[in-house]
């Protein structure tokens, strides 16, 4: 390296930003965390699997009878509940995102990054890319378990591709939201509690039981909250059925959440941290 300590200030070329390169570096950092501590991923993927087994084997017989017009049962309910469990896999992963962001902030490493000449957003995109990879790994595991216990989706290749793409869009949106939630938390504990609504929202949607069975107020909420169109879209894609208007509504929500999460995250990252 050619450095001349006596020169006043670096050459202009040194002031160029490399957002892609920095983001790649930061993503590697987050992926390394994930590989180094696989228990975190297993813990996050454990919850949706437990819920899957619980809802299929404990409640599934009864719930299955209630959801279908025909002779419903456990296997019908498995088909019905998988989209909600997939969504729950994503919300569980993004809870991990919020926690790891909050940990970075308490460790002081983000303060170091802030004083360095790097593309600022790369710290956040590193977490986003890391979480996307982690979410897809978790989704693959959960889907594997679902297939193992008898889930039989009807989707063809196109349907699977569309499902994958759609899951990516949903994950991307929720990850950005939780990047903000992780930053707004003052401690790791808060960061693990703040995304709780995301974990609970699938229950108040068409994910576990059809919204028709709910009392009026709740039903109204369930039908208009973002997770219902997302779950309906997933259901349609996996079972090779028309998605209808749910697809557009879901994508609209995702775009809104992504934009909101991104802008909020950027604002929070730019703010001054007293201490």
């Amino acid at each position: 390296m050619v450095t001349a300590p006596s020169l006043p200030g670096p050459a202009p070329a040194a002031l160029r930003f490399h957002p892609l390169r920095d983001s790649a570096t930061m993503s590697r950092r987050n992926l390394r965390h994930m590989l180094r501590y696989p228990s975190t991923t297993l813990l996050l993927v454990g919850m949706p699997i437990v819920f899957l087994l619980l809802f299929v084997y404990v409640f599934g017989g009864t719930l299955g009878a209630g959801i279908s017009e025909g002779p419903g049962g456990r296997s019908e309910y498995l088909t019905y509940v998988v989209p909600a469990i997939l969504l729950m896999t994503i919300t569980s992963t993004v809870q991990g995102t919020a926690i790891s962001i909050a940990m970075d902030l308490t460790e002081g490493i983000i303060a170091r990054f802030r004083t360095m000449h790097i593309a600022r957003v790369s710290v956040l995109t590193g977490h986003v890319v890391g979480s996307l990879v982690q979410a897809f790994l978790s989704l693959a595991i959960v889907m594997g378990v679902a297939l193992l216990i008898g889930f039989r989706p009807e989707a063809g290749l196109g349907g699977w591709l569309a499902t994958t793409g759609f899951l990516a869009v949903v994950t991307f949106a929720l990850v950005w939201l939780s990047v903000a939630l992780g930053q707004v938390s003052r401690s790791v504990e808060t960061a693990s509690n703040l995304p709780m609504p995301l974990i609970l929202l699938p229950f108040l949607s068409s994910g576990f039981v059809p919204t028709d069975s709910m009392p009026t107020g709740l039903r109204w909420f369930a039908e208009y909250q973002p997770f219902t169109p997302i779950i309906e879209t997933l259901r349609g894609l996996l079972m090779d059925q028309p998605v209808g208007h749910h697809g557009w509504v879901a994508l609209g929500w995702c775009a809104l959440i992504t934009l909101g999460g991104y802008l909020w995250s950027r604002k929070l990252y730019g703010r001054e941290h007293p201490s």
Partner: peptide, 10 residues
């Protein structure tokens, strides 16, 4: 800084 700015996990 006064507070350690290393990545403990690495």
């Amino acid at each position: 800084g006064q507070f350690s700015a290393v990545d403990s996990l690495l």
